[in-house]
Design a protein around this nucleic acid. Structure first.
Lengths: 192, 192
DNA sequence: GGAAAAAATTGACCTATGGTAAGAAATTAT
DNA sequence: ATAATTTCTTACCATAGGTCAATTTTTTCC
């Protein structure tokens, strides 16, 4: 938690009260590998996670039973089902721990209310959201213009240590290919 | 411009000074079809556009000369090259008018500074960014799980009137297929 | 440490989509 | 209106990636 506070403080001042409030609406928790933090379809989503350590992923299962990974959540990243929270609908995504993970659990509504009480948090969130938008734009452009093999290369650069925590099919479903295709891509790379 | 102000006011109060400042940093302009507002590769991007009327699109040209459309900008949408602005690098995208369009041109830096002077704008922007993130999440999930034909159906639902302004290859490059493929998809739909 | 379960690889085949090129249609400019 | 230009369609073939099933490898858990 201190880690998050320091992160925010590195860019701006924070009153003691504002800091205290953040503690009040959150809870540090450790979950074991395989734990499902949000279940696709559950009636409401009211939690947002800040990852202190470990690795999570958010994904959806389509009508054919195939999984599609939207995001990996590693150290210092936020992860939740923003679609469900923003549209106030049932969970469109599942979130699970790919290894034992320590996260700060925020109540989504209380986190959202923090700004009426402590507008000083606004710039931090604005910056966070902007960065998020930019990375999503990049991801869409990559998906449009790169081959599966190129996307895999880029993925390895962006998440250099993640392969120890993930199954190949997690990565495949993030890249938008089948696990068999990813396997073949890996073989090709080794050959070269 | 009044349209934008009213949009903001529908969710929150706005002081007269804040309103005046918005006028001060912006300029209403009309561009004819084909006008390029941002050119891919240009040294700096310092403009953000709010669309009052018309239709724009942002796209990049890859190393093989193929175009990839990131976004269409229609009435009430914001459009710019956020990647370039946020990373402070040269333009990664081009933005062009697909028909005669009237937009409010904002200076990106001044728009960003508005929050230090008028924090009352923060909630508006936060909401805007959140909505944007959610729609990008949706787009990525759609790209991962839907066929080209399904993505086209969805596109027509989301942009019901856009076909009058766009060339087929604009839409194809947004969906991530070639224009020939889109043409075949259209034929299939008519058959049914 | 070994059995059971899960994941990864591999091969054979298939399908959706891409590439190319030519002609048809639509749009734009004169 | 007509010519020039751009865009769209269509036919044919090519290919990246998907599917299914069998086998091997890795991981999990008593």
């Amino acid at each position: 938690m201190k880690a998050l506070i320091n992160k925010i403080k590195s860019n701006q001042d924070l009153s003691l009260e504002a800091e205290a409030y953040l503690y009040a609406i959150s809870e540090k928790k450790t979950f074991s590998k395989g734990t499902v933090l949000i279940k696709q379809g559950q009636a409401t989503v009211n939690k947002i996670f800040f990852v202190l350590d470990g690795c999570l992923r958010s994904y959806c299962v389509d009508k054919n039973g195939k999984e599609h990974t939207l995001q990996f959540g590693i150290k210092d990243w936020w992860i939740s089902d923003y679609i469900a929270i923003h549209n106030n609908e049932s969970a469109t995504l599942a979130i699970e721990c790919l290894k034992e993970s320590t996260v700060i659990v925020f109540n989504a509504k209380k986190l959202n209310n923090i700004f009426t009480q402590f507008p000083e948090y606004e710039p931090f969130l604005r910056n966070l959201l902007e960065r998020h938008v930019v990375s999503l734009h990049q991801r869409i452009l990559n998906q449009l213009q790169l081959t599966a093999s190129e996307r895999y290369d880029l993925f390895l650069k962006q998440y250099p240590d993640i392969e120890q925590f993930t199954r190949n099919y997690h990565i495949a479903s993030y890249l938008g290919v089948t696990q068999e295709s990813l396997s073949r891509i890996r073989v090709e790379k080794i050959k070269k």
